Amino acid sequence: MPKAPPLAITHVWMTLFMVVPAMFCIVAGDTAGKALTQAGAHPFFVAWARFAMAALVLLPLSGLSRDELPKLLGWRILLRGALVVGGIASILTALSTEPIADVFGAFFVGPIISYILAALLLKEHVTPARSLLLVLGFAGVLLVVKPGFGAGLGMGFAVLAGVFYGSFLTATRWLAGHFRPRFLLISQLLVGSVLLAPLALAVGAPAMTPQIWLLLIGSAAGSAMGNFLLAMATRSAPASVIAPLVYTQLIAATLLGYLAFGDWPDALSLTGLAVILTSGLLSLRLARR
């Protein structure tokens, strides 16, 4: 049986240069979201505002045509939108009560979920070596959190966010060949705005100070840019290649957590980060083959 053709080196590096910045953008958005909850905003309001503001800004740039409007009501688009809504609402709820590093540690059941679903539902090719490296990356996550799963309700929401996000990654790969990246982005923003509007109305808005506005804009911009880059990456690389790179999100969470909240990992956590980075680099090497 002939071997599968190698993935072009340029595609690998393009994937790297899209996914890694995407992860930093998404974490930056969530860091701003945590700051918002500390300032008194409810997680559901923050989630809705993030979707609504990004949709308002990006709608004119989305290239959405009249012919595409019916596609917004397609069940696959609605399902993908609901998954990202569940993920963002869950992780913001977790961040409102738990340290950012612990939340993202629990959140990292996501790449495992994505990897398994891609193999089962999308029939993507997986190898024992790549599977082992993904497990190695997850072991690094456990070193970081030591482990802290199930410590409280907030950590339960963090795990739930990871399940939603891993499913969202697979759904994005599933639809990437059928829709434009900008359509996928604007569809999730519009679906999220509609689904979260009743919850945001129920909890109410905080006092809209300049600080709140600035954090809302930063949270929306980070999330939108990160998800756009991720949608671009999924057009040229399978979920099984992208999944290990998503671990760089934990590195971003550690760095931004220190800069924003003064939390710096101990020696064991730094070892875990090194394991995660090694796993991602080795996975990229396999992808080039």
Rank of each mutant, 00 (worst) to 15 (best):
A202Y: 07
K71H: 12
F45D: 01
A205H: 13
L7H: 15
G105A: 11
F44T: 05
A32K: 06
L189Y: 00
S62Q: 09
P111I: 12
A139V: 14
H42R: 07
A207M: 12
P2Q: 06
A176S: 15
P238G: 11
L284I: 10
T15E: 10
L201R: 14
K71A: 10
S219F: 00
I112A: 15
Q38A: 13
T248Q: 01
L132N: 02
L95T: 08
V85C: 14
R289F: 14
L59H: 02
P99F: 15
L286V: 02
R180M: 02
L56W: 12
C25R: 03
W13C: 01
S96P: 03
L136N: 03
T31N: 03
L64E: 12
T209D: 00
S236C: 10
A274N: 06
T127S: 13
H42P: 02
L281F: 12
A161Q: 09
A239Q: 04
V27D: 07
R130K: 11
S96N: 04
F108Q: 00
A82Y: 03
F228W: 13
L7S: 15
I88P: 09
T234F: 15
K123H: 13
T234M: 15
V194R: 00
L169Q: 06
C25V: 05
L134Y: 06
L95C: 11
M155N: 04
F138K: 01
I212K: 03
A239W: 03
V20W: 01
V159F: 06
L142F: 09
S193Q: 10
A89F: 08
D263I: 08
L56V: 12
G222N: 00
G154T: 08
L61S: 11
A220H: 10
A161R: 04
M18N: 05
G222W: 00
V20I: 12
W75N: 10
W264M: 11
L286M: 03
I276K: 02
I26S: 02
T271G: 10
I88N: 13
P206T: 01
M23D: 03
L133G: 00
A39P: 06
P244A: 06
V84E: 13
V84I: 15
S269A: 15
L175K: 13
D102N: 12
G137P: 09
G257A: 09
L230C: 05
A41S: 13
V135E: 00
A129Y: 02
S114D: 05
T10I: 11
L273Y: 13
F45M: 01
T97K: 14
P5I: 14
R235A: 11
T31A: 12
I77M: 05
A287K: 02
K123A: 14
G40R: 08
A176K: 12
F261K: 05
Q38R: 14
M23K: 04
V141D: 04
M232N: 10
L132P: 00
G218P: 08
I26Q: 04
A197R: 06
I26V: 06
L117Y: 02
A47E: 03
G86F: 07
F157G: 03
